[in-house]
Write a protein that binds this DNA or RNA. Structure first.
Lengths: 214, 214
DNA sequence: GTCTATACAGTGATAGAC
DNA sequence: GTCTATCACTGTATAGAC
């Protein structure tokens, strides 16, 4: 066996790195095959198309992530006892954030920027829009801080990220067309989440254990 | 004055429609200019680049959306009385969902599919990944239903969309690198939101007024 | 099977004539 | 302002070498 990985894997590695650095659209197959020291046609031979290569790059990481999620859920469910709500949510959330915001010493290194590249079609576009409407979000953060005092600026910003994430995802993905009903649900969901952040956490982020549900 | 709009506006209209139907990447400038009955070079003359055209398409709608948000927030804040938390959140959320899930008779018609095109780099990729890992989300929906009975399937799915949206956005956007702290916050945020959905709403979605905060 | 060289139609961008 | 012609570059397909 040789010291260098097979062509197929070298392409995957190079593609992941370049996609994360420059985005899918901006990265050409010629860049990828050159970095992988492979021939241009090798991409289509091994993967079929650029689209399929992108999918393969994601699949390699998401398989591991979802395996970790299900393992954690299995562990919480073993012994026939139904797990607490918080345990279920931890199985869903903790592995995901460990992959994107955790230690940077293994293959997860590019997962976060890969998610970025996935989430927005083009970094430039997303950055431009964020900057353009940043004053709107600042006004809302201020209004929330007035209506609900007691959150540090850092935590308020994080909570607002949760809300904007839920809203953005719902705007794009939801299939129901009853805007008012969805909005009512999201307002209630967000308000409950915000209030729980004030009532449970210390004003500054001192370490804590989740005791709210015990 | 003529009956047909200026070239610049015809390009914007055609671009918005085609982007929404086929995505940014799949739509060529030649398609757009042909549909707008304009010359190919007119795009670069009026907007500078394809990237700038995409930005202009979004800006036209997002300007209106954020204006509506701020107007609603102004209205809630008038009379020197600090608005309730729910009123602030409604100003943020209701106009957004009205734009994407509201009446389809005006220029907002394509906003939702435009958001789709914005959120995922390529519909095919997103669909493929969703289908591939749908069983994971189904298992989590089931575990949540067990831990927290009383939500209809439809509402549980919607709440789960909120959580996945917040998680996805955080994975891509958050700058902090403390995975455990963010995860703790999100778990708590999601749990509080879920519990409030059970305790306030009728089991089936009967009309209601938001009375939780009064 | 694995990989290479090469050709092809279509892309965004631009310079310069009108 | 608008248009034509042209550029370098893209993803893809295929014929054939090893």
């Amino acid at each position: 066996m040789t010291a260098t990985p097979a062509t197929c894997d070298r392409i995957l590695d190079a593609a992941e790195r370049l996609f994360a650095e420059e985005g899918f659209y901006a990265t050409s197959l010629r860049q990828i095959t050159q970095a992988a020291e492979a021939n241009l046609a090798a991409v289509n031979y091994h993967f079929g198309s650029k689209q399929a290569l992108i999918l393969a790059v994601f699949r390699r990481r998401l398989d591991a992530l979802n395996k970790a999620r299900l393992a954690r859920l299995d562990q919480a469910q073993e012994g026939n006892a139904a797990p607490e709500l918080e345990d279920v949510l931890e199985a869903l959330i903790v592995p995901a954030l460990a992959f994107t915001h955790g230690s940077a010493d293994d293959g997860h290194r590019f997962m976060r920027i890969l998610m970025r590249a996935f989430a927005d079609r083009d970094d430039q576009l997303h950055r431009a829009l964020s900057a353009e409407y940043a004053h709107v979000m600042r006004r809302f953060a201020s209004a929330i801080a007035t209506a609900l005092p007691g959150l540090s600026e850092r935590r308020l910003r994080r909570q607002l990220d949760f809300i904007v994430g839920a809203l953005t995802y719902t705007m794009a993905e939801s299939t129901s067309s009853d805007a008012r009903e969805i909005a009512d649900d999201l307002v209630q969901f967000a308000a409950a989440g915000l209030r729980s952040a004030v009532s449970v956490r210390h004003p500054d982020g001192a370490p804590r254990t989740l005791e709210i549900h015990s």
